[in-house]
Write a protein that binds this DNA or RNA. Structure first.
Lengths: 193, 193
DNA sequence: ATCATTTCTTGCCATTTGACAAGTGACGTT
DNA sequence: AACGTCACTTGTCAAATGGCAAGAAATGAT
């Protein structure tokens, strides 16, 4: 069936009737990205919410020195969007790029709001996504403070092995908060154990 | 007038009639904290949303090695709560402690929901708070990745001078992601310039 | 297959930060 | 005033990480 993953995902996060679930998911449109395509670029407003069915993406910003800093990796069966830009309708400070061919479903800010309006219980979904992303960020900030680079690497490879399958090491390095040189060394010392 | 700061704060974040503003703020109850009192302790559910009118607070968690890590400082005229715990009704992973005598206004999760229900435009307020906190966290994570400890210190003292007035240096150190020893050295080198 | 480009690794050295311990200073209690 | 406690500073040394440059490996274009 069409959009099955999306239906399942929403069902897991909100208690709506199957009929309402259908009404919700009907509003999403399929979208495809080639490898290296952008879902969002810095400076534009993120007007769409994306459910990534198949593929892998990364978010990144360019810092003052001109370096790319990866801020997040997005795997399939997750939602992808720039929280601040989407809700505040301000220009995005980050880019979201497909690292593999990807397939997903889009919904606009307007349509999402209409759904929130007509199905109050669906609001929970929006909030749940926000809270979830928030917690993830908090965890990451904490790890940056009190874990060594090696521990952060070790945790990442255990919890998100697929990242290493799809993302370049330099992207992973900036995500971990280290240089690619350091990551390379850490990987070496790991392989020697 | 009573709760003037709270009224102003909400007015700045949502377009409600003055009458509705009054209905909203009436539901908040005054609360006072002595220095070192806790608004929230780890393991308990954060059932209240606090608007801090006067005073200064910090959020912190205890990491695996048993060290306190300050995750946030809360100044007056801001809202204070644990996002994940409040919305997911799960045990808090952090403590929120008053660093000075404080006065604020509380509202329960239930009452807040009732207000959201009866005044749809007020929902925007809830979301705005979440988005704001989210952006702040993201900024901080980025700074931890691509700024030196010295730059982070310099930014903090420029943007949040009051933190240095109320918080102990070791709290500030863990917030900046460094040891109190390093902070001490950074401060020394700053004072020599 | 060849070549050019990009990514990754490695070596060398500098810098940043941490760990630990001793010392100083501030503060509150009695 | 004397004491104890806690916060902060400082010194010494070690460990972690970065900067740079050269080389190796992988990737993509022709």
């Amino acid at each position: 069936m069409e959009k099955q993953q999306l239906v399942d995902f929403i069902r897991n996060h909100v208690s709506s009737s199957e009929e309402n679930l259908k009404r919700i998911t009907e509003e999403f449109e399929e979208v495809r990205f080639a490898k290296n395509d952008y879902f969002l670029t810095e400076g534009k407003v993120c007007n769409y919410y994306l459910f990534l069915e198949e593929g892998f993406m990364r978010s990144f910003t360019i810092d003052i020195e001109g370096n790319e800093v990866t801020t997040y990796f997005h795997s399939n069966n997750k939602v992808v969007f720039d929280v601040s830009s989407f809700f505040s309708k301000t220009p995005a400070t980050e880019n979201i790029q497909a690292l593999t061919e990807s397939v997903g479903y889009l919904i606009s800010h307007e349509k999402l709001n209409l759904l929130f309006h007509s199905m109050p219980e669906f609001r929970e979904f929006g909030r749940a996504m926000l809270v979830k992303e928030f917690s993830a960020f908090k965890q990451r900030t904490l790890a940056l403070i009190n874990k060594s680079a090696e521990e952060r690497y070790s945790n990442l490879i255990q919890s998100n092995k697929e990242i290493f399958q799809y993302a370049q090491l330099r992207y992973i390095a900036s995500f971990l908060g280290i240089t690619d040189t350091s990551l390379s060394r850490i990987r070496k010392s790991f392989s020697e154990k």
